[in-house]
C-alpha cells in the first residue's frame, strides 16, 4: 500500500487540504479584527500628524477620538484627512509618496488650513535601513517639521542645517534617506500649494 505510486500523492494532497482549510478558516475569522487594528494604527498616525496626543493605546478609544475630530474628504481620488469639519477646518493631512534610498516612502504631511504652516509629518511605510535611515520614524526627527512656515514663491521649504535658514537637522549616517525625505516634502508641498493657487 505505502509502496504504491498514488498513495503519497493522495496523502500529501489530503494533509495540504486539511491544513489549508484550517488556516483559511482562521484567517477569515480574524480578518475583521486585523483590519480594525490596521485602521486604528493609521488613525493614530493621522492624529500624530495633527499633533493631537492619543489618550489611550486602546484601538476602540483611538477610533472614537479619531471620529470626533477628523473628517475624510476625497480630492482627486486621494483620501485627505481634515482636522475639524466644514467651515471649521484647521488643517489638512495630505498623502505623499516618493523614492527613498531603498524603496518608496509613504507619508502624510499636515498643512494648516491657510496653507501657511507645516503641522507635522508621519511615515506610513518605508524600507530604509533599520537604525540608520529607519530613524526617520523617531519622534525627535518628525517633530522638527512642526510649525515650519511655508514661505511664498520658494520651492525649498525644508532646509537641513548647517545651511543658512536651516530648519531641520538631518539624521547622522543617513544622508541619502534624509535628502529623500526633504525632496519628497518639498516637491509635494510645492504641488499642493500650486493646486490651491496660493502664491
Amino acid at each position: 500500500m505505502k509502496k504504491s505510486f498514488a498513495y503519497p500523492i493522495i496523502f500529501m494532497s489530503l494533509i495540504t487540504a486539511i491544513y489549508t482549510f484550517l488556516l483559511a478558516f482562521l484567517d477569515h475569522s480574524t480578518a475583521e479584527q486585523i483590519e480594525f487594528l490596521a485602521s486604528a494604527d493609521l488613525q493614530k498616525k493621522i492624529l500624530y500628524v495633527f499633533d493631537i496626543p492619543v489618550k489611550s493605546q486602546d484601538p476602540e478609544k483611538i477610533d472614537k477620538q479619531f471620529k470626533e475630530k477628523i473628517t475624510i474628504k476625497e480630492i482627486d481620488g486621494e483620501k485627505v484627512y481634515l482636522l475639524g469639519e466644514n467651515e471649521d477646518v484647521k488643517a489638512f493631512a495630505y498623502p505623499v509618496r516618493g523614492a527613498g534610498l531603498w524603496g518608496s516612502i509613504e507619508a502624510y504631511i499636515g498643512i494648516s488650513a491657510d496653507y501657511s504652516k507645516l503641522v507635522g509629518i508621519e511615515f506610513i511605510s518605508h524600507s530604509e535601513t533599520p537604525g540608520l535611515g529607519g530613524r526617520i520614524d523617531e519622534d525627535w526627527y518628525k517633530n522638527q517639521f512642526r510649525g515650519i512656515e511655508l514661505k511664498k514663491s520658494k520651492n525649498e521649504y525644508i532646509v537641513y542645517s548647517p545651511s543658512p535658514n536651516a530648519n531641520v537637522d538631518a539624521i547622522t549616517g543617513a544622508t541619502l534617506t534624509s535628502q529623500s525625505v526633504r525632496d519628497i516634502v518639498n516637491v509635494n508641498i510645492g504641488k499642493i500649494l500650486e493646486e490651491k493657487k496660493v502664491d
Partner: peptide
C-alpha cells in the same frame, strides 16, 4: 496560526 493570533490579539 501563531502569527495570525499575535496579529489579531497582540499587535
Amino acid at each position: 496560526i501563531v502569527d495570525i493570533f499575535l496579529k489579531a490579539y497582540y499587535p
